[in-house]
Design a protein around this nucleic acid. Structure first.
Lengths: 346, 346
DNA sequence: ACTATCCATGGAAGCGCTTCCATAAACGTT
DNA sequence: AACGTTTATGGAAGCGCTTCCATGGATAGT
């Protein structure tokens, strides 16, 4: 272990500057009640000593700290990361640190949640895409930990979401309007028990659309599996090898749609002629691949979610508990024939 | 502002259990020097009161805290996230929280670094893919903050890296061995001033390979731009529209290779027949797309990097300051004709 | 000129925890 | 039975900061 230099504390600075600790504290916290001369002396001492205030001590003393926790599932998913980026950016701009807690199981969710309930583990927490039980929410309230939800909702807690069901309907309606009738669906199977619901809601949206057109929904065209391109490709293989394969596929995410595209290619099935494909999310990959998709403002959801946490910290009421972001259909070359499309497809 | 319940402290627990605070502290920290009976009484009181120890107070008192900071550039890049995931996982397993600091500019890098130098902002920091100056490193040492580097190196600081240059050589050699002579390169231009070097090193590797075969390197086939599929596609467009377009392209990352593939498709250029394409990283997308690539263990680099930080925290010397992870050529259908390849390509 | 304010400042009491030290009880030893 | 050990436990002093309160000098109001 390295022999450590004795930490320089506020006391050392005070001594060197010939003032009291209270004054040093005022300087650090930009309290105006310090004469310019004194302030300069203190600043000089801080500089000379290479003093850094201890975040821990300050937090303890103030009874509040500058760390916000973010709970994220499967951090490798591009949609999650895009949201996270928005969160981090906003928090950083306001001087808060972001502690990321990754959860991939119920056990992990509860462990982290338990930890965070402690008022001092984080001043507030942002939850991305993980449904919370009413019990959790209650405990947050009891413990006085602020909470902001992204892509998940809970009674009375500020949350920013999109309408997945309507999004699903939008996607399906697009396919139907293109004359497709046999629409396959590839989505997530929730093996974690965490209760992810967006894939399911999008499927409901698909059925809504079918109903609107008085079309029967062939349940055998629905395939659920682990989230991922590889898994989606396998599921799609099953679909395409059916006696009566679908003429269109709606994938619950762009990631899965990529797998669908790969499967189609492997089966030498032409897209969009023989198979129309649409995804969900609007990841960069969709625009590169010319993948039609329902685009949602991921980054922005993070920004918005973080802002709403900050509002609470400031003691302001969040004016609009439920914030709904809009969805946008991006019709590209996996649903619309290329010659009918402008060159770029973006 | 919500009226807050008075926080329950260790003192309340002690009173309720009829013991001293020291004993409660021992129970919390699983100190064996507590009789089973007393332990039970204390635990009951903790439960009854819903007590949670304050991390801040504990950290302050112990003079160490349980938060590790991770500095990451462009958190949305899949390669960065994969590394980050490894880091988080290991730290979490050891009871450490992970504070993520995203840096996209020099200013941000320095601001975060300044902040972290304070011994108490984080017990240690893991830096991913961001070159540090000798000055920074020095200050870390002076301030007694532990440091572990991933995908970047610094004299005397534990780091885990791959040999990008050799990787580049590997990729290029593969292309050359396939009979390709005019090899284009699409890589990163460092607009941030942060000094990312891997793209450049991979380019050097390409030249090494060319030299090995006594081939001339046509510099006009090198195109650098912002990291991203879209940008890479544009750069590739330029290359493919040349009078003498390249017969192979080495992209500095899979993300960029995806852009290359899109460009080739738009130009109706057959891959791999007319154009062989190879990427770098081994992201999931490469295996889905059948993209040849140089695979590096990203997740593992995070794991390894975090472990080395932990070793330092434990006061153990890191045995091997420089840890080199191996690279692996994945030859798939963008370099090798499909019929010569097994079905899956993974 | 005298009091009522205001301001810059220092002292000291916490914030909630850990840990050193002291104490007393329980144990084993000869 | 007297002694040295070991063990469970409590008290109290910090950890480094913020902030309430008090103080004294300067300023302003009448």
């Amino acid at each position: 272990m390295v022999t450590e230099r004795q930490r320089v504390s506020i006391f050392d600075v005070a001594k060197m500057a010939g003032v009291g600790v209270a004054t040093v504290s005022r300087v650090i916290n930009s309290n105006p009640r310090v004469s310019p001369l004194t302030r300069m002396r203190v600043e000089a001492a801080i500089e000379a000593l290479g003093y850094h205030p201890s975040r821990l001590a300050s937090g303890l003393s103030k009874g509040r700290q500058d760390m916000v926790a973010v709970l994220v599932p499967f951090i490798t998913r591009p949609s999650v990361v895009a949201r996270l980026e928005g969160v981090i950016e906003v928090l950083d701009r306001d001087g808060f640190g972001t502690a990321v807690y990754s959860v991939r199981s119920l056990e992990q969710r509860d462990r982290h949640l338990d930890y965070l309930m402690d008022r001092h583990a984080a001043i507030g927490v942002v939850v991305i895409s993980i449904p919370l039980t009413q019990l959790h929410v209650e405990r947050f309230r009891t413990n006085g930990v602020y909470l902001s939800l992204i892509d998940t909702a809970s009674e009375g807690v500020p949350h920013v979401v999109v309408d997945d069901r309507t999004g699903g309907c939008l996607a399906a309606t697009h396919l139907i309007s293109l004359g497709r009738r046999r629409i396959g669906f590839i989505g997530d199977e929730d093996l974690t028990g965490l209760g992810f619901a967006s894939s399911y809601k999008r499927l409901c949206g698909l059925e809504d659309a079918l109903n609107n057109y008085h079309l029967e929904h062939d349940r055998s065209l629905v395939r659920l599996g682990r989230h991922g391109s590889l898994e989606a490709r396998q599921l799609c293989d099953q679909l395409l090898e059916l006696d009566r394969p679908p003429t269109a596929i709606f994938a619950a995410s762009d990631t899965q749609a990529v797998g669908v595209l790969a499967s189609a290619e492997a089966h030498a099935i032409r897209v969009p002629d023989d198979l129309a494909v649409i995804g969900f999310d609007g990841l960069e990959i969709s625009s590169i691949l010319g993948l039609s998709t329902i685009e949602q403002p991921l980054y922005e959801s993070g920004v918005e979610g973080a802002k709403r946490l900050l509002q609470q910290l400031d003691g302001r009421e969040v004016e609009q508990v439920k914030h709904v972001l809009r969805l946008e259909l991006k019709a590209r070359s996996t649903t619309i024939s290329t010659h009918a499309l402008s060159k770029s497809g973006a």
